[in-house]
Nucleic acid binder design. Structure first.
Lengths: 148, 148
DNA sequence: TTCCTTGCAAACGATTTGCATTGGA
DNA sequence: TCCAATGCAAATCGTTTGCAAGGAA
């Protein structure tokens, strides 16, 4: 194994620096862990992944700082619980598909052509209601291979 | 003004009956109100729209029953708060656009051609990950006319 | 009459915050 | 050093629930 770090870690920490926040142990741990697991996770799940090395209240603050700095993105799942994952500029733009039966979620990628089709549709729709569209989120629902 | 009721009200109450739940005052009030306002609303907002005629705890139960019966749909907004609106089979399929600044949300409609494009994209994407796609949700983000 | 539904208050669970202490630059 | 970050405990806030009283079928 080489001594080279994951480039994503460096990019993320660089972003923290330029946001004027310190790179601390908890922040580094969270970033490194979220690189290794894919898909969005709740604060509690991240806590367990870190073997409770960071108390939940501090973890919430950490996740909040990382989200504010643009390193993470947050959304709420069907139960209303916040889930965090690496921001798209680190992982690439993607969407989600969720199994309506078992609730499992996975990332999906569209082709560049498809993405540009979607952006065009989004821009048009925004224009008709006077919004300046800045982004889009697509969640597909279906039955996963195990449940179908 | 005619004495004819909104067909949507009748459809919704019919659905309640066939779900085996009673048609009560609170349930009727909520349905009638949500027909008159568009876009998704929080429990608290619905409560205010009803001039607090239904206590919040009962309102939550009402919204929960209506959602379980398929009269309403629930999702969680950017702040993680539950928002309710008439189910798509009553209002027609649509999507949402949310202002990233003030948080206001409104419904948007795509043309039938656009919808079929989206369905095709969704089906393709599902196929590549082995999911049988049953539906899609698109949330656009942007700046509303007031905030842009 | 028979259960389902309601209202109230208390309980909950996810998330946030005050404050004294610790630690990064 | 100096101010930001942490840990703990207590506070918040949206939402749910137990229970006795009221209401739809």
């Amino acid at each position: 194994m080489s001594t080279q770090r994951q480039p994503t870690v460096d990019l993320a920490e660089e972003r923290l620096r330029s946001s004027g926040v310190r790179t601390t142990r908890a922040r580094r741990l969270v970033i490194e862990k979220l690189i290794r697991v894919d898909g969005p996770h709740t604060a509690e799940e991240v806590g367990k992944l870190l073997r409770s090395a960071v108390p939940l209240s501090s973890l919430y603050r950490t996740l909040s700082v990382l989200t504010a700095s643009g390193v993470l993105e947050r959304f709420h799942d069907g139960a209303g619980v916040a889930r965090y994952e690496l921001a798209e500029w680190l992982t690439g733009h993607h969407h989600h598909i969720t199994c309506g039966n078992c609730g499992s979620t996975q990332d999906i990628d569209f082709s560049p052509e498809t993405e540009s089709t979607i952006r065009r549709i989004a821009d048009d729709a925004g224009e008709t209601v006077g919004f300046a569209v800045t982004g889009h989120r697509i969640d597909l629902e279906g039955l996963c291979p195990q449940c179908r």
